[in-house]
Amino acid sequence: MSAITFPTSSTWDRVKGYTPPTRFLPVIATLALFVGLFGAGGVRYDGLADPQVLLSLLIDNAFLIVLAVGMTFVILTGGIDLSVGSVVALSTMIAAKTLQMGWSPYLSIAAVLATGTLLGLLMGLLIHYFDIQPFIATLAGLFLARGLTYLISVESISISDETFTQLAFKTVYFGEYYLRWTAIVALITVAIAAYVLARTRFGRTVYAIGGSESSAMLMGLRVAFTKVGVYVISGFCASLAGLLFSLYILSGNSLHAVGMELDAIAAVVIGGTLLTGGRGYVVGSLLGVLVLGIIKTLISFDGTLSSYWIRIITGVLLLAFVVVQRFATRRQS
């Protein structure tokens, strides 16, 4: 904070005296972390301060953003979805295979989205109606989706459909800077999700379940619908992320996206969402993905650090956020 004061300006006093509500603090911390990393990188490495680097972050991580959005819904209810990485792989495979078989790209896209949504629905039903722990039910989903991927093809299939590849490279220019369509889709997803969580009855019920499921039940909220709903959303987001990923990588492969669920969970947690549920924002998850992305970019700019540092740093960030959250919630209770 700057030490300069303007005794006459009451507006400045108000700005100075403004403290953000504590519930926004985690997101602000993540934003500060991102700005700090970006700023430090900009000072240290030539060319990193370019706005296009920021836009490229969005382009390169579009699929992860969408994945993290779906995961945010699940984690907000206090659950977890381990299946999303496998669903991404399955989605690339369905897209590649159907296109190879000569399906229309639109039909192919519909098939991918329907599959992911259906898988999410099945897991949600298992979790809610049979009281199976989310991590074990989605573990079954992980195996199932990976198995289905292999069932379609053990080999990698490349995507060469013209409409599809055109979609992949569709670009929007802002003067000399540009964004791919995939990134725009991701940003739209974030916007819709933020709206749903903040302004709809469904969204608020998601938070209520994360705060206390039994209370939500006693308050007469639609707990069953919402609990199943978040896994449907997560399944849908995972398949949408799978589509974006196949647009990015232009192939279907059963070895794609191994461990991507961990990246998504890490992004959500670094974005300030409480793993026990009830607190967090999709915007935070977007920032979480960007923090992971900027670390990746910094490491590649540096050149001397190996890529595995990304995982270690992610782990350290995860630890920091989890421990801080733990003490923050312990103090409150």
């Binding site: 519930r23 709206y195 302004r199 709809t200 009855r201 608020r204 019920t205 938070y207 209520a208 994360g210 705060g211 206390s212 039994s214 209370s215 939500a216 006693l218 308050m219 007469g220 909220l221 009830g278 607190r279 409150q332």
Partner: peptide
């Protein structure tokens, strides 16, 4: 034991499930 959700606002806790809405949004 208070059967409300601590992570939402006072108003939401009072009105959750029957919030006033406009065009579907709370």
């Amino acid at each position: 034991e208070v059967n409300l959700v601590p992570n939402l606002t006072v108003a939401e806790n009072m009105l959750l499930g029957r919030e006033p809405r406009r065009f579907g949004a709370i």
